[in-house]
Nucleic acid binder design. Sequence first.
RNA 1: GGGAGCAUAACGCAGCGGUGAGCGUACCUGCCUUACAAGCAGGGAGUCGUGAGUUCGAAUCUCUCUGCUCCCACCA
Length: 875
Amino acid sequence: MKREMEKTYSPHMEAEIYQRWIDNKYFHAEVDESKKPYTIMMPPANITGQLHVGHALTFSIQDILIRAKRMQGYSALWLPGTDHASISTEVKLVDALAAEGLTKADVGREKFLERAWKWREDFGGIIVRQLKRIGVSCDWDRERFTMDDGLSQAVLEAFIHLYGKGWIYRGEKLINWCPKCKTTISDAEVEHEDMEGILYYFKYPIDGGGFISFATTRPETILGDTAVAVNPKDERYAALVGKTIAMPIVGRRIPIIADNYVEKDFGTGVVKITPAHDPNDFEVGERHGLARINILNDDGSMNSNAGIFEGLDRLECRKRITEEFKKQGLFIKTEPITHAVGTHDRCHEAMEPMIKLQWFVKMDELAKGAIDVYKTEKLKIFPERYGKIYMHWLENIRDWCISRQLWWGHRIPAYYCQGCGRISVELKMPDSCPECGCASFKQDEDSLDTWFSSALWPFSTLGWPQRTKELEYFYPTDVLVTGNEILFFWVIRMVFSGLEMAGDVPFHDVMLHGIVRDADFRKMSKSLGNGVDPIEVINTYGADALRLMLVTGNALDSDTRFYWERLESSRNFLNKIWNASRFLLMNFDIDSFDEAPDLTVIDRWIVSKANFLIKDVTSRIDAYDIGSAAQAAYDFVWDEFCDWYIEMVKPRLYAKDDPTRPAALWTLRSVLISALKLLHPFIPFVTEWIFLAVQDKEETIMTSAWPIWDKALDFPEEESEVDRMKEAVRAIRNARREMNVPPAKRVKIILVSADEKAREFFGGTKKTFAMLSGASEVLIQSSKEGVGEDAVSLVIRDAVLYMPLEELIDARKEMERLNKERKRFESEVERAQKKLSNEGFISKAPPEIVAEERAKVSRYKDMLKRIDEQIQRLE
RNA sequence: GGGAGCAUAACGCAGCGGUGAGCGUACCUGCCUUACAAGCAGGGAGUCGUGAGUUCGAAUCUCUCUGCUCCCACCA
């Protein structure tokens, strides 16, 4: 066993350890009927992405869960993979083409896709390599890519299935169009950004005389107006309804109509209606049978319906229209306005609503299922409050536009007969048309929304639609861990897809976490330049320090901050546990124990504390309370184990002939090993390194058994006794400081107690007690006989400690100190007595609370009495 | 416009009906005590955002106000 350990912790061994884990296939999970399965599907990383600290957070959490469960004996599968990210990847490829002076059209679909695959080969693996640096223990043998053959097949099957049920349809509807990316986008991909804009006021001449004024933020859409609407109850305009308007510029005649959608009190109470470019207007148009005039080309420029403005960009057109209205005397005014503009979340270009023939997923039935599993708690969301958001979204969901005018992705499996136009939705191109017998088909040019394939991820990765043994065993998965911003895009879509395709929820629990922000709580972004590269952090501090820092100091549902300071304190903790282990190895000079030695009170105390920690950490992990689980282990190791237990045990270790020495070594090692195991999920590398160093055999910690709480190791009495000793030690250290006793000065301590048990305990732990309190000798007595008047006296539970200070004693100072103590207890007694004299408290508070309060009074009074004795002694 | 959340020590957080109101950093003081100065010991520091209410008892539950944050949303 014993490995040499450097004096200071350094993370340089991480790569070596990770490689060994891989070589030994510790990450690999198999179908194993003798074990229970535990499954997490890693949210597929975007192949265009670079690893950022957000990844580090989410993957650390998942790794913590999977490592804990693996040690608990589950067949724990964490399946990793990547996503083809259609828009992001395609944008990169188009940019690369542009750099060569080419366009998509120049190279053609086939060549474009060749380039795409090449690109994914060259760069798609970068993020995976970076990911490994974090220490993720996912099953790389089962790594998947959303465009693998199997997963692509699953996409086709799912599409065909939904089409067969009538839940996928093709229709001409108003969709969100990104003029920059030249594709449709779904509602979820539209971001609403508040922007400073201008509200333009114009007027239209009414046939038969007069004008009607209105306001708009998008004057260019005037070219597509097919009506002007007012509220039916608006008396100001009642007489105008039914009249027509001769539109300037385009010369079209459009009606004035009445519709409830218009609010009387907003603006002029008049709305121009552009059914082809506004969702509300579209609906008004439906109700009144208005024409839809599309005025835009796909690139956002004006089309032929714009007449003289054809070819202008929409923003340029906006200016020119305004000028034209001014010329014609129909311009009223402009005013600044802040309004929400829908933009594409990828490129932030202002999105334009347009009418287009697209493919949609009908949501009503699918949403019902997703709502139902949440209501019946088959699906739980942590933190709970996100449940409301989940429900709200599903209850207001609209059909999902899934077709994209992109090449990189899953091409829609719809084939149009060139003879009769019949649509066939098939796995592959049909041989002949069942309608007209013609053999000429054309496949739909569009591809599917990236999220359509990601929605199948929890089961397509396990072989669906085949009923594989993996699917049977690992599905439904246990928990999905992801950032809260992705609830709508992905989580909800996985839920209804899982229910519909695989016949069950894709996961039982959803655990959502926040994002990592910079120290000033700003989002990390390229434009701010405040991003932190996790690889750099790992290079200097190690993955363990990064993981620990990200996961502690914050509740899981709130955003966490990135602090270099906190990173250092995490690293310091690693050094602490490193050195505690080194201390053990330096003293561990026996080969083995025949049997567990008899433990002293102090050993039982730390064993009991460690035993409780096991229960605590385990249950916190199960509740996804990762941060406090880590914190509990951290506090135990640093405070209890290092600052107290190791210090207490030193005299026993240094005296080679001490009969309790083996017990100390045994306890030291077994408690350390428990702590290492409990900490392993959080800081896998150091714990493995140390585990190998302190074990008898070469055994990985990764598959070692998770500690289990044991009733036989619960020692409440010992805990209470050692706590009293700690109290005594602190009192002495405190007094020494207050009395200005030089640190190196050893002082005699006399403990006086009428309590036999207390005397016995302190008698048995004399050496330890003396060392901790810097005493030259400790006397234990039942009376204060022989205690001189030059002694400082310290009152603790069941005892008084005397510290003769001889020439150092300053009676005045000591009186001051005693009076301060007295005051403290007095005010406590007062507080408790006041409570007890309250009739309502006695009669209404639970009896145990009242009893506790009474006990406090007598305890404090007891202390007060002894303090008073000391005061008298000095007087 | 709708919804959710947060205000506790200088900073970051925990506590969610009975605690002497904690923890980590930072700060002050003293120590190189043979595991660790990336450390040890000790210390100061908080009318728990405001105002009310419920209760025997409120940092904790309810409402008001104030200030932040996030999500959703088609007011021209």
